[in-house]
Computed example of a mutant assay.
Amino acid sequence: MESTQRTMAADPFDPTSDEHVDVLTGMYADYLVEEQDRTGHMVPGYAVAGFLRTAIIRINGQPAGFFSADLKRYSIELIYVKPEYRGQGVATLALAHLAHACPQPMDLKAPLSPGGEALAKRLRLGVAESTPEQIQENREAIRQAEQALKQRCQHKRTGDPRRPCKPCYRTGLRKYARIVIGG
Protein backbone atom coordinates (compact mmCIF):
# COMPACT_ATOMS: atom_id res chain seq x y z
CA MET A 1 0.00 0.00 0.00
CA GLU A 2 1.30 3.45 -0.93
CA SER A 3 1.66 6.03 1.84
CA THR A 4 -0.07 9.38 1.40
CA GLN A 5 1.60 10.91 4.43
CA ARG A 6 3.28 14.23 3.76
CA THR A 7 6.30 15.61 5.52
CA MET A 8 6.84 19.27 6.24
CA ALA A 9 10.20 20.87 6.92
CA ALA A 10 11.30 24.43 7.59
CA ASP A 11 14.59 24.78 5.74
CA PRO A 12 16.55 27.78 7.12
CA PHE A 13 17.29 30.22 4.30
CA ASP A 14 20.93 30.09 3.16
CA PRO A 15 21.87 33.23 1.18
CA THR A 16 24.95 31.44 -0.20
CA SER A 17 22.80 28.73 -1.82
CA ASP A 18 21.77 29.53 -5.40
CA GLU A 19 18.81 27.16 -5.05
CA HIS A 20 17.59 28.92 -1.88
CA VAL A 21 18.01 32.37 -3.45
CA ASP A 22 16.12 31.30 -6.60
CA VAL A 23 13.29 29.62 -4.68
CA LEU A 24 12.83 32.46 -2.19
CA THR A 25 13.08 35.12 -4.91
CA GLY A 26 10.33 33.41 -6.90
CA MET A 27 8.00 33.07 -3.94
CA TYR A 28 8.65 36.61 -2.67
CA ALA A 29 7.99 37.97 -6.17
CA ASP A 30 4.75 35.96 -6.32
CA TYR A 31 3.75 37.37 -2.92
CA LEU A 32 4.45 40.95 -4.07
CA VAL A 33 2.52 40.50 -7.33
CA GLU A 34 -0.45 38.80 -5.61
CA GLU A 35 -0.66 41.57 -3.03
CA GLN A 36 -0.30 44.28 -5.69
CA ASP A 37 -3.14 42.65 -7.64
CA ARG A 38 -5.25 42.43 -4.46
CA THR A 39 -4.58 45.90 -3.03
CA GLY A 40 -3.62 47.94 -6.08
CA HIS A 41 -0.27 49.01 -4.62
CA MET A 42 3.03 47.69 -3.33
CA VAL A 43 2.81 46.27 0.19
CA PRO A 44 5.34 46.37 3.03
CA GLY A 45 7.05 43.33 4.44
CA TYR A 46 10.52 41.87 4.37
CA ALA A 47 11.41 38.36 3.27
CA VAL A 48 14.99 38.72 4.47
CA ALA A 49 16.77 41.14 6.77
CA GLY A 50 19.45 41.01 9.42
CA PHE A 51 16.86 40.93 12.20
CA LEU A 52 14.79 38.13 10.64
CA ARG A 53 15.03 34.37 10.62
CA THR A 54 13.72 33.20 7.25
CA ALA A 55 12.91 29.63 6.28
CA ILE A 56 11.61 27.90 3.18
CA ILE A 57 8.65 25.67 3.96
CA ARG A 58 8.94 22.34 2.15
CA ILE A 59 6.31 19.66 1.71
CA ASN A 60 7.83 16.32 0.71
CA GLY A 61 10.98 18.23 -0.22
CA GLN A 62 9.19 20.66 -2.55
CA PRO A 63 9.06 24.41 -1.81
CA ALA A 64 5.55 25.23 -0.59
CA GLY A 65 6.08 28.67 0.98
CA PHE A 66 8.26 30.65 3.33
CA PHE A 67 8.15 32.58 6.56
CA SER A 68 10.25 35.36 8.03
CA ALA A 69 10.20 35.67 11.81
CA ASP A 70 11.46 38.38 14.09
CA LEU A 71 12.34 36.30 17.15
CA LYS A 72 13.22 39.37 19.24
CA ARG A 73 9.79 40.97 18.74
CA TYR A 74 8.00 37.60 18.66
CA SER A 75 6.34 38.34 15.37
CA ILE A 76 5.98 36.80 11.95
CA GLU A 77 7.03 39.44 9.41
CA LEU A 78 5.73 37.44 6.45
CA ILE A 79 4.26 34.04 5.85
CA TYR A 80 3.50 32.99 2.29
CA VAL A 81 2.10 29.72 0.99
CA LYS A 82 2.06 28.94 -2.72
CA PRO A 83 -1.49 28.78 -4.13
CA GLU A 84 -1.36 25.02 -4.82
CA TYR A 85 -0.62 24.35 -1.12
CA ARG A 86 -3.20 26.70 0.41
CA GLY A 87 -6.02 25.29 2.49
CA GLN A 88 -3.92 22.29 3.51
CA GLY A 89 -2.67 23.49 6.90
CA VAL A 90 0.82 24.45 5.69
CA ALA A 91 0.86 27.84 7.46
CA THR A 92 -0.50 26.24 10.64
CA LEU A 93 2.26 23.62 10.58
CA ALA A 94 4.90 26.27 9.95
CA LEU A 95 3.65 28.32 12.90
CA ALA A 96 3.67 25.20 15.09
CA HIS A 97 7.29 24.66 14.06
CA LEU A 98 8.10 28.23 15.10
CA ALA A 99 6.32 27.80 18.41
CA HIS A 100 8.93 25.20 19.39
CA ALA A 101 11.77 27.70 18.76
CA CYS A 102 10.19 30.65 20.52
CA PRO A 103 9.63 31.04 24.27
CA GLN A 104 6.36 32.92 23.84
CA PRO A 105 3.52 33.00 21.30
CA MET A 106 4.22 34.73 18.01
CA ASP A 107 2.06 37.50 16.58
CA LEU A 108 1.43 38.12 12.90
CA LYS A 109 2.74 41.49 11.76
CA ALA A 110 0.25 43.95 10.30
CA PRO A 111 -0.95 44.70 7.73
CA LEU A 112 -2.51 41.28 7.16
CA SER A 113 -3.95 39.86 3.97
CA PRO A 114 -7.42 38.29 4.21
CA GLY A 115 -5.72 34.89 4.50
CA GLY A 116 -3.50 36.22 7.29
CA GLU A 117 -6.51 37.63 9.11
CA ALA A 118 -8.27 34.27 8.89
CA LEU A 119 -5.14 32.45 10.09
CA ALA A 120 -4.72 34.83 13.05
CA LYS A 121 -8.37 34.41 14.02
CA ARG A 122 -8.37 30.61 13.63
CA LEU A 123 -5.16 30.18 15.68
CA ARG A 124 -6.00 33.02 18.10
CA LEU A 125 -2.79 34.87 17.25
CA GLY A 126 -2.17 38.46 18.12
CA VAL A 127 -1.35 41.13 15.58
CA ALA A 128 1.91 43.07 15.96
CA GLU A 129 1.68 46.62 14.74
CA SER A 130 4.67 48.21 13.08
CA THR A 131 6.53 50.92 14.97
CA PRO A 132 6.20 54.49 13.65
CA GLU A 133 9.81 54.20 12.43
CA GLN A 134 9.04 50.98 10.53
CA ILE A 135 5.93 52.52 8.99
CA GLN A 136 7.94 55.52 7.78
CA GLU A 137 10.76 53.28 6.52
CA ASN A 138 8.25 51.11 4.64
CA ARG A 139 6.52 54.12 3.11
CA GLU A 140 9.84 55.54 1.91
CA ALA A 141 11.00 52.20 0.47
CA ILE A 142 7.69 51.76 -1.35
CA ARG A 143 7.78 55.36 -2.62
CA GLN A 144 11.29 54.90 -4.00
CA ALA A 145 10.47 51.53 -5.59
CA GLU A 146 7.26 52.85 -7.17
CA GLN A 147 9.08 55.94 -8.46
CA ALA A 148 11.72 53.74 -10.09
CA LEU A 149 9.01 51.53 -11.62
CA LYS A 150 7.14 54.55 -12.96
CA GLN A 151 10.28 56.02 -14.54
CA ARG A 152 11.04 52.78 -16.36
CA CYS A 153 7.54 52.42 -17.81
CA GLN A 154 7.42 53.81 -21.34
CA HIS A 155 3.92 52.55 -22.15
CA LYS A 156 0.96 54.80 -22.78
CA ARG A 157 -0.96 54.74 -19.52
CA THR A 158 -4.63 54.50 -18.89
CA GLY A 159 -5.95 54.90 -15.40
CA ASP A 160 -3.88 56.39 -12.59
CA PRO A 161 -1.01 58.36 -14.20
CA ARG A 162 0.99 58.14 -10.97
CA ARG A 163 1.41 54.39 -11.41
CA PRO A 164 3.24 52.37 -14.05
CA CYS A 165 1.18 50.07 -16.24
CA LYS A 166 0.35 46.65 -14.83
CA PRO A 167 2.88 44.67 -16.95
CA CYS A 168 5.70 47.07 -16.00
CA TYR A 169 4.63 46.96 -12.34
CA ARG A 170 4.71 43.15 -12.35
CA THR A 171 8.11 43.05 -14.07
CA GLY A 172 9.42 45.68 -11.68
CA LEU A 173 8.21 43.78 -8.61
CA ARG A 174 9.99 40.64 -9.83
CA LYS A 175 13.22 42.63 -10.31
CA TYR A 176 12.75 44.18 -6.86
CA ALA A 177 12.39 40.70 -5.33
CA ARG A 178 15.63 39.58 -7.03
CA ILE A 179 17.46 42.59 -5.59
CA VAL A 180 16.04 42.12 -2.07
CA ILE A 181 16.75 38.37 -1.91
CA GLY A 182 19.85 38.12 -4.07
CA GLY A 183 21.76 40.98 -2.60
Rank of each mutant, 00 (worst) to 15 (best):
P103T: 03
A101H: 09
A69H: 13
A94H: 04
I76R: 04
M27C: 00
L24C: 02
L112N: 06
R170D: 12
Q88N: 13
G172M: 05
Y80S: 08
P132W: 03
P63E: 03
D37S: 06
Y80M: 11
A141H: 13
T171Q: 15
Y28T: 01
R157I: 13
T25H: 03
P44H: 02
P63N: 03
T158Y: 06
P105C: 05
V81W: 02
H97W: 13
V127M: 09
A55P: 00
Y28G: 01
T4P: 07
Q36Y: 15
D22S: 14
T131S: 12
H20F: 02
L119G: 07
G50L: 00
T7S: 11
G183H: 09
A55R: 13
N60L: 01
A96E: 15
D22G: 00
P103F: 06
L32S: 02
Y176A: 07
R73N: 09
T7Q: 12
K166L: 14
T39R: 11
H20K: 01
A9Q: 10
Q144R: 15
P15A: 09
G26T: 00
T16S: 11
Y28Q: 02
R58L: 04
Q5W: 13
V48W: 05
V33S: 08
H155D: 15
V180D: 08
I59T: 00
G115C: 04
G172P: 07
S75N: 10
R6I: 09
E146T: 15
P105G: 03
M8E: 14
K150M: 10
